[in-house]
Every structure is written in structure tokens, then in C-alpha cells.
């Protein structure tokens, strides 16, 4: 019994995942097509990248609620740079990333130096960014031909190269955002698993004081975790802008919760019970696959959030419930 539970905790999630992969394919053969595989992956990239970002802050026992709005403001900034300012798309990318770094840095300083609890600091930041993103365009979506405050029309447009980041495909099959996601995931996995920085981040999450007493500049690491979270969110924002092709004011909604859910589901993968890059990626793919497969089997669209909730609760039971705690 004990062995079975241990096995279930470790591999249960992956077995369920493999099982549903098989099941969907048997019931609906087109599920297994390459193009469908990539369509699943394309569907989860933005949330997946954000989940990787939030993983960093979860590792240091923190939290970043501002990831979704950071991505959203980068959509607006990219559009503003290209459409209103009408300058090169490179600046759209650079400015977005710079903004992501800044937001992360401010979050980090608020939490580490001003000692504001992480949830509150990033909640405040979230609102601040949500408001800020509306200001340059006076609350309007940014698209070519939009009316500017001085009565002229915006003349710039999204650069082809920029759109390629979101809508392009390699070999006419692999979507570019998926490639970006994969590269990021591999780098982050490597950093967390095989470098001293990853080791120290996890250690800080375990016992901050002990790490401090081991001579580590804990504050700097914690700030770094938020900077990384902000930076990664801005990359997600750039890809989102390139996918949507327009500075749409509503684009950030729902991203935060989906990303956090994926990262939490990740705790259950291989029973590690910790935030981890592999888990976050697997978690987000699992949800994407489930929704895709169930939709193919005619599951109505409005049940999607319900399904996500079930997966999350089940994953949390795997993670926390099955490991019996002793009195």
C-alpha cells in the first residue's frame, strides 16, 4: 500500500497524462496529427512562459501577481512603439524587456527592502500596471489607423519580422512561439537544476535564514527572482503582441491565473512537491492537451474552466493530500 502510494505520487500524474494522450488519439485519430500537436503547444506557449516566470518567485517562497499585467503592458508598449511612434520593431522588443526588468526590480525592492509582503506588493503592482498600460493610448486599443489625440491617424504598423515571432512557422510546421518557449524552458530547467544559482534559490525557499548564515546575499537573489519573473513575463508579452498583432487593451485577462494554476500543477509532476520548471511545462501542456482533446470530443467551450479546476485540485491532492502527515 505504502509503495503504491509512493508510486502514485511520483508517476501518477504522468500516467494520467499518457493515458489521456492515448485515449484521445484512439477516439479521435486526428488528435495525434503533428499539426494538432503543434496547435496544442501553440495554444499554451504564452501561459507556459508566464508559468516559468512565476516558478522563480514560487521557488524563493514568494509570489508574483503582476506577471499577467506585465505581459499585457508589453503588448501595449510594443504596439505603441511600432504603430504610434512608428519606429523600428527592435525598439519594441528592447523597450518591452527593459520594462519587464524594471517591473521585476521594483517588485523585488518593494518586497526585500521595503518589506512589503509579496502578495500585497505584487497585487499593488498589478493594478498599477493595468492602469498604466491605458495611459499612452488614452484607454484605446492601438492599431494602424487609430485616431490620435492630435486628430491625425497613426501610420505605423506591426513589422513583418515582429509578427513572425508570433505567427510565423519554421518548416511550415513548428510555430515560432513554441520554439521560443522550448528554448526558454530548457534554459530555465538547466539553470534551476544544474547551477549554483538554482540551488541557492531553492535553498532560500527552504530556509532563508540558514542560507543567509551560509554567507549568501539572500536579498540579491530574491530581487533577482522577481527581475527574472518580470523579464520572462515581458517575453511572453512580446509574443502575445506578435500573435494578436494589435495593442488590445483586454489581452492580459486570465493569463495570471492560468499560469499560476500550471505552476501549481507542476508540483505534482514526479512528486517533487516543489515549484519546478519541468513541472510547470508539463502542467501547462497537460491542460492544453486536455482542453484540445475534450473539445475534439465535443465538450462545450464553457466547461473549460471547470476542467482546469478539476485538474488543479487533483494535482494538489497528489501533491499534498496523499503524503500522509503524522501527528
Amino acid at each position: 500500500m505504502e509503495k503504491f502510494v509512493a508510486f502514485a505520487i511520483k508517476y501518477g500524474f504522468l500516467i494520467v497524462m499518457a493515458g489521456s494522450f492515448l485515449g484521445f488519439g484512439l477516439l479521435e485519430p486526428s488528435f495525434w496529427s503533428w499539426s494538432n500537436m503543434f496547435s496544442i503547444l501553440l495554444g499554451i506557449t504564452i501561459v507556459g512562459i508566464l508559468a516559468l516566470g512565476v516558478t522563480f518567485t514560487l521557488i524563493v517562497d514568494g509570489f508574483d501577481l503582476s506577471i499577467g499585467s506585465t505581459a499585457a503592458i508589453c503588448v501595449m508598449i510594443s504596439s505603441y512603439v511600432m504603430v504610434v511612434l512608428n519606429i523600428d520593431y527592435i525598439y519594441a522588443i528592447l523597450l518591452s524587456i527593459l520594462l519587464g526588468i524594471t517591473i521585476g526590480l521594483v517588485n523585488g525592492l518593494l518586497i526585500v527592502k521595503a518589506k512589503i509582503p509579496d502578495l500585497l506588493a505584487t497585487l499593488g503592482m498589478m493594478f498599477l500596471i493595468q492602469g498604466l498600460q491605458l495611459i499612452p493610448s488614452a484607454g484605446m486599443s492601438i492599431g494602424t489607423g487609430m485616431m490620435l489625440a492630435d486628430g491625425t491617424e497613426a501610420e505605423g504598423e506591426f513589422a513583418k519580422q515582429f509578427l513572425f515571432l508570433g505567427q510565423g512557422r519554421l518548416f511550415d510546421l513548428i510555430p515560432v512561439p513554441v520554439v521560443v518557449f522550448a528554448v526558454l524552458a530548457i534554459i530555465i530547467y538547466f539553470v534551476l537544476q544544474y547551477t549554483k544559482w538554482g540551488r541557492i534559490l531553492y535553498a532560500i525557499g527552504g530556509n532563508e535564514k540558514a542560507v543567509k548564515l551560509a554567507g549568501v546575499n539572500v536579498e540579491r537573489y530574491k530581487i533577482m527572482a522577481y527581475v527574472l519573473s518580470g523579464t520572462i513575463s515581458s517575453i511572453a508579452g512580446i509574443l502575445l503582441a506578435a500573435r494578436i498583432g494589435r495593442g488590445d487593451v483586454t489581452s492580459g485577462g486570465g493569463l495570471l491565473l492560468d499560469a499560476v494554476a500550471a505552476a501549481l500543477i507542476g508540483y505534482a509532476v514526479l512528486g517533487v512537491k516543489k515549484p519546478n520548471a519541468l513541472g510547470s511545462v508539463v502542467g501547462v501542456i497537460f491542460i492544453g492537451m486536455l482542453l484540445n482533446g475534450l473539445t475534439m470530443l465535443s465538450l462545450p467551450y464553457y466547461t473549460q474552466d471547470f476542467i482546469k479546476g478539476i485538474v488543479l485540485v487533483a494535482a494538489l491532492i497528489f501533491t499534498f493530500g496523499l503524503s500522509k502527515s503524522e501527528i
Binding site: Y202, A203, G206, N207, K209, A210, V211, L213, K273, K274
Partner: peptide, 9 residues
Amino acid sequence: TVNAIIPEN
């Protein structure tokens, strides 16, 4: 426990 151990490691 407070000052040295990194749990779950």
C-alpha cells in the same frame, strides 16, 4: 532547525 537546516533537500 531555525538557522541551518534546508528542509526537503
